[in-house]
Structures are given as structure tokens and as C-alpha cells.
Simulated scan of single mutants.
Amino acid sequence: MIEDQWFTVQSIDETTFAISEYGHWEKVHSFLLLGRDRAALIDTGLGIGNIRSITDRLTDLPIDVLTTHVHTDHIGSHGEFERIFVHEGDQDWLVHGIKGLSLEQIRRDIGRDISKPVPEGFDPRSYSPFQGKPAGLLKDGDSVELGGRTLTVYHTPGHSPGHLAFYDQMNGYLFTGDLLYNGTPIYAFYPSTSPVDLVQSLERIAGIGGVRKIFGSHNLLGLEPEILGEVQHAVQMLRENDLIKFGTGIHTFNGFSIQF
């Protein structure tokens, strides 16, 4: 559909697109959702390539950027868009920088294990993550209206204080950011994370009805809804065994793992 050196564009349906960065070890996905009046872009990727060059080819609708959380691999092209939204729990990180991560560490992470040619001009040695003020804040229970399509906002802290998930009830699509994905561990082992909050957030999304597909921000594109049953099992097991705290390591379940 769209040929690009860095990004892979996959159509989920006629109005929903995954924009993926498979050439980087984090295998990041961002998502463009089209309504009648507006579009929503869930995250803007690593910033190795300019995601705006892709969204401009997919739609001429005005775009609202919905930030799942303020980590480098989710805000890379935020500077290309005027209307950025974030939860207040991550607002300070967006404005002043990500807590607990040095620029040197960010540059090491952005530049390692790259398996595809990078766009001209990208140099990890001079990479700097986006900083700036959002156009507005999102809170739990908010509705994002796109025109004939509504997204419900869920505050799902744990991986970061202001982490958000978005539910497209009409299509049954649940966009979980870094709260739920497969392949590599979901993590809450940094001082800026909260194992207790992460488990509570997992329990909450497992109770959402009508989910037909889960779209996490890394690795395999699209998880089946049956994984939410395994999430409920994981929450119970972790609680019963007093494992929801820093230092208990990696806990593996059917389809995903969690690291505290």
C-alpha cells in the first residue's frame, strides 16, 4: 500500500492502520484511526523516521496525537504535530524530560540493534527526544470523538504514572500501549514504575467487554481476546504468591510475561 524505507504500513481495516518500525529491536507500532471528521494517531514512534511522512499519505484529516505514555519510543515524531494529548501523570515528562533516563542511555537504546537502513539524517549520537507542552490532557473515562467513531480513554498506570489505553468499542479494538503485548517482558522494574499499579491496570482491561482484538505497541501485531482470560489468571497468581513488588524477576504466562 505504502512503500517506505523505514516504516511498514499495515491496514487493519479501511480506517485503521498500523505504522510499524520493524528495523529497530523494540519493533514499535503506532496506530492511525480515521473518523469522519478527524483522525487519531496513537503514539508517534521512535523518531528515527518522520511518521508525519506516512500519515500525510494516509489521510488529509486533522490529526490528534493520543499518547499512551511518555517514553522515547512513543513520542519520537510528536514535534511534527500541533495537537498532542497526554495524561497529566506523564505531562511533566513530556515538558521537562523523562524521569530516570539520561540522554546518553536514550541514545544508546535508540541506536543499537538496528536491522534496516535508517532514513538519511538520522544519527543516534545527536538524537534528542521530544520535549514540549501538550495541547490538552486526557483523563480516565474521557471520550475522543472522531466523527462516527469514538475512543474511550482508560488510565492504566504502572509502566508509567500516566499510561493510557484506548478502546474503540465500535470495532472492538483495544490499544494497550506498553501495558500488554507479547514477545518481550512487559516491565515495571524501574523506580518510575509501579508493580501494584500495573497489575491493577491489567485486571481492569481484562474486564472490558466486547474486545475483538488487542493491539499492543511492540512485537506481534494484534493479539486475540482470549489473552485477557490469561491476564486474569496472571493477576490472581501474582497476588496469591506475593510477587507484585520490585525484584521478583520475570513472570511468564501463556502469551506474555511481566518483569518486576
Rank of each mutant, 00 (worst) to 15 (best):
M1T: 09
D4A: 04
Q5K: 11
T8L: 09
V9R: 00
S11F: 00
I12M: 08
T16G: 00
E21T: 01
W25Y: 11
E26C: 07
S30E: 03
A40T: 03
G45Q: 08
G45T: 04
S53D: 13
R57H: 10
L58Y: 03
T59D: 09
L61E: 04
T68P: 02
V70P: 08
H71S: 12
H71F: 14
T72A: 11
H74E: 00
G79I: 04
E82H: 02
F85H: 14
H87R: 04
Q91M: 13
W93P: 00
H96V: 01
L103A: 07
Q105S: 13
I106W: 06
I110H: 05
D113K: 12
S115R: 13
K116Y: 13
P117F: 06
V118W: 01
P119K: 09
P119L: 02
G121I: 09
P124Y: 09
Y127T: 11
F130A: 10
F130T: 09
G132M: 07
A135G: 15
D142Q: 01
D142I: 04
L146K: 07
H163R: 03
A165K: 01
F175A: 06
L180F: 10
N182S: 15
Y187H: 15
A188C: 13
Y190D: 09
S192R: 14
S192M: 14
S194M: 00
V196R: 12
L198T: 07
S201V: 05
R204D: 04
R204N: 10
I208L: 14
G210F: 07
R212E: 11
K213R: 15
I214F: 08
S217N: 04
H218R: 15
N219M: 13
N219D: 14
G222M: 06
L223M: 15
P225D: 09
V235M: 07
V235A: 12
V235F: 12
G249N: 05
G249K: 05
G249S: 03
F253G: 02
F260S: 03
